[in-house]
Amino acid sequence: MIEHVPAVLSHTLAAVPTGVGSDLFDLQMPVLEKVIRTVVIYLGIALIIRVAGKRLMAQMNSLDLVVVLLLSNVVQNAIIGEDNSLVGGLIGAVVLVAFNAVLDHWSMRSPRLAWLLSGKATQVVTDGVVDHHQLRRLGMTEAELTNSIQQQGATTLSEVRHAALEPGGSVTVELRPDAHTATIADLRRAVDALTAQLQQGRPERP
């Protein structure tokens, strides 16, 4: 049976379509062009998300989902050009991951760069009052804001002292002191304090 192995291998290699090896490993564009294309598209998408991404990441509706699904297809040709090779795809992936890691590391050391890439938190509620101007600027409805606030433990807007939409899309909420839900530990401390006060005020027996 062993003597038939070379014949099987040669038959298998002969069945491989011509040009498969070149499609896998031959770049159709210079490596530098591939790197530049990938970095420019990365920065372009980062800019788009910087401008309009807070609301997109906070509350994604069906239209936002369509945008996200189509975005990769829209920029795909801009990244790969006419290069469909395996090596070209791997180069693009490595450049994306490496460039993202460099920006992350750099932004941790530079607050200014972090602000340029991500922006800052946007105050949307102050003492229970909604800032409708900021909501319109963010493209966020009051219903979406209320839903996000309720997920943070508030029942109504009147319980909220401050609420802000963070650059990453999360909503941070600071409740009024009287709106915090009491825990079992809080109740125990209150009972212990009341018991101590009663014992201090109790007259001593003769």
Results as ranks from 00 to 15, higher is better:
25 F>E: 10
40 V>S: 12
86 L>E: 09
28 Q>F: 00
100 N>E: 10
105 H>Y: 15
127 D>W: 03
111 P>E: 05
111 P>Y: 00
197 Q>V: 15
65 L>N: 14
146 T>V: 14
1 M>N: 13
191 V>Q: 13
69 L>F: 13
143 A>G: 14
117 L>T: 07
184 I>F: 14
14 A>I: 04
13 L>K: 04
55 R>D: 04
96 L>I: 07
104 D>A: 07
188 R>N: 12
98 A>C: 10
19 G>S: 04
9 L>F: 09
93 A>L: 10
89 G>A: 11
61 N>R: 03
98 A>G: 11
200 Q>K: 10
203 P>C: 06
91 I>D: 00
204 E>Y: 14
92 G>V: 02
92 G>D: 02
129 V>Y: 09
15 A>C: 07
115 W>D: 11
134 Q>F: 05
13 L>M: 07
64 D>H: 13
93 A>P: 07
149 I>C: 01
115 W>L: 14
37 R>N: 09
159 E>H: 00
167 P>F: 00
198 L>T: 13
62 S>E: 15
138 L>Y: 00
177 P>S: 04
90 L>D: 05
15 A>P: 00
131 D>F: 01
68 V>W: 05
147 N>K: 15
111 P>C: 07
177 P>D: 08
153 G>H: 02
135 L>C: 05
106 W>N: 10
68 V>F: 07
144 E>C: 06
59 Q>W: 15
200 Q>W: 15
149 I>M: 02
196 A>T: 10
38 T>A: 09
20 V>G: 08
46 A>M: 10
15 A>R: 12
162 H>Q: 06
170 S>P: 08
37 R>A: 10
16 V>I: 08
7 A>Y: 05
122 T>Y: 08
194 L>A: 11
172 T>G: 11
155 T>R: 02
97 V>T: 10
94 V>C: 11
106 W>M: 13
68 V>G: 05
90 L>I: 12
21 G>T: 11
136 R>I: 05
45 I>G: 06
165 L>F: 00
138 L>T: 01
124 V>E: 00
166 E>S: 02
108 M>Q: 12
159 E>I: 00
143 A>Q: 09
101 A>W: 15
135 L>W: 03
5 V>H: 10
38 T>N: 06
107 S>Q: 13
147 N>C: 09
21 G>N: 13
160 V>F: 00
97 V>I: 09
142 E>S: 07
136 R>Y: 09
72 S>E: 10
169 G>R: 02
152 Q>F: 07
183 T>Q: 04
66 V>T: 07
109 R>Y: 07
177 P>F: 07
157 L>W: 00
21 G>I: 06
58 A>M: 03
206 P>W: 11
110 S>T: 12
169 G>F: 04
20 V>P: 05
103 L>P: 02
150 Q>I: 05
28 Q>M: 04
95 V>W: 01
124 V>N: 01
65 L>R: 03
90 L>W: 06
111 P>G: 06
